[in-house]
Amino acid sequence: MHLETFAHGHSPLHRLDPRAKLAAALAFSLLLALARAWPLLWAGLGVGLLTVGVARLPLVELAKRLLAVNLFIAMLWLLLPWQVVDSPGWLGLGLAYHPHGLDMALAITLKSNALVLVLMALVATSPINQVFHALAHWRAPVKLLHLFFFFYRYLHVLHREYHRLDWGLKARGFSPGSNWRTYRTYAHVSGMLLVRSYDRAERVYQAMLCRGFSGTYWVLDHFAWQRRDTWFLAVWSLLLLGLFALGRTLA
């Protein structure tokens, strides 16, 4: 399971301070999530495409992520135009067709895609540990930081563990179906995964205590805020102000 697909690159965005990028992504998300005006939504998508372009993300992987997001949205295109009415409408199902729902689906499509693009270009371009580090700088609760760190550290380990259990099932000729036996088997496999995780957590904690763990979240390499980070934030703020003004004047 390789997760940090976009983190290794050489674009200008990859080199920026994660704090700057995270702040920029948060501001953009808030602005766009609350946006209503059409020009703002289209412009937001434009900004998303632009940032992804600047980040020079691998296209195949990018397309895969976008496909996953838009498969869900495609469902909304099918469902939103239908409204529940009291009288037996279309096919007697009590549904009526309202084209207005399509507008809503389009708005959601634009927003979702814009936000996902910016998230990929600005947040996923930092190694995940640096994102935690940025949160540490912002005085996020230290317990929460530890949770993030451990979660990510052991996710891969547990995924391997799960695959081992799964191979075990396959080696014994298990083929899933809709029956009690299948559900019980899956329950026991998941239960075993939890038991092993629990035991592992115990060992990890003891090892940490042996190494003098006292609750501090240590970071080894430190950020150095550079002039380019300030420039990036300045340009980004102007961009967002422009979008905001656009939404105001045309709403």
Binding site: L147, S178, V204
Partner: peptide
Amino acid sequence: LKKMDFDRLPQVAIMSAAFFVASLVNVPI
């Protein structure tokens, strides 16, 4: 977070990861 002491930290995080992995299990219905 307040109710969770430091000695339960690894447990909560690793269990959370385990649940995340367990939720990848596809069950036929």
